[in-house]
């Protein structure tokens, strides 16, 4: 918390001088002790919300409690969180165009490996998405794997065709958030509440949302890796 002003002199290793390190160390040790004490004072037995989750798992449309919480019980959080992701991308894009990389040959091994790995990764992503309904997995995990595929391709010099880097790319990026919002809104006249899935097709809706989210997350993360706006075919 003492991060007020930085001293004029900074030591060679990028750290502040000793006298500026000692005080935080002492204070933070005290903080750690205090926090630790607080943590330890918690009751050793607590079920949290696991019971109501288990009780309502039936009507959530999925059988994996984490997915149920994530996309149904606390789906609103997840919706906003997709917003955060999109926002980060917007922020990065607003900083300017993607830095130009020196075009170097990725090397034979990498090239071969990427050709092998990318389809596999996409497949794994699909699987993770699918299994998320029942077991650990889901949109974020799947999206991350998808993003790996994208990053790998980018590292090997692949670039999105400028034909697709305009509106099509943007649509893909917002698909997750968009589908989520649209589903949530559409449900209002039907179920009466935002994001209140009717139990009968809750599962299907969740899968739909997750699928769109996976795509968006994957592409977004890959785009973030690029560190800036991609070149587009149309306007700047």
């Amino acid at each position: 918390m003492k991060k007020t002003r930085k001293p004029k002199s900074i030591t060679e290793n990028g750290k502040k001088p000793a006298q500026f390190r000692l005080l935080p160390a002492v204070l933070l040790s005290a903080l750690a002790v205090g926090l630790g004490y607080a943590v330890l004072s918690l009751p050793s037995q607590a079920s949290g919300l696991s019971e109501p989750v288990a009780a309502n798992l039936e009507s959530s449309g999925v059988s994996n409690p984490v997915t149920a919480v994530l996309l149904n019980f606390r789906g609103y959080d997840t919706l906003l969180e997709l917003g955060v992701l999109l926002l980060a991308l917007l922020g990065v894009w607003s900083l300017g165009a993607a830095p130009k990389r020196r075009e170097s040959s990725p090397g034979l091994v990498l090239e071969m490996l990427s050709r092998l790995l990318v389809p596999l990764l996409i497949l794994v992503a699909g699987y993770l998405l699918w299994i998320g309904v029942h077991a650990p997995g889901g949109a974020f995990q799947a999206g991350s794997v998808l993003a790996t595929a994208g990053v790998l391709s980018l590292l090997t010099g692949w670039r999105l065709d400028t034909r697709f880097s305009g509106l099509p790319l943007r649509i893909t990026l917002v698909a997750g958030l968009g589908v989520f919002v649209v589903v949530g809104i559409v449900l209002i006249p039907m179920g009466g509440r935002l994001l209140a899935y009717p139990p009968s097709f809750a599962g299907a809706l969740i899968l739909l949302i997750e699928a769109a989210a996976t795509l968006s997350i994957g592409i977004t993360l890959a785009a973030l890796f690029l560190g800036g706006r991609p070149e587009t075919g149309g306007h700047s």
């Binding site: 607590a46 959080d77 969180e81």
Partner: peptide, 29 residues
């Protein structure tokens, strides 16, 4: 994981997933 024997409380897990995504986004920015 303080639920004696039963499956751990899923809500914090969901929170962490949300938190991670937020952290990733923020780190990227």
């Amino acid at each position: 994981a303080r639920t004696q024997g039963a499956t751990p409380d899923p809500v914090p897990h969901a929170m962490v997933i949300t938190g991670i995504v937020v952290a990733v986004s923020a780190t990227a920015l």
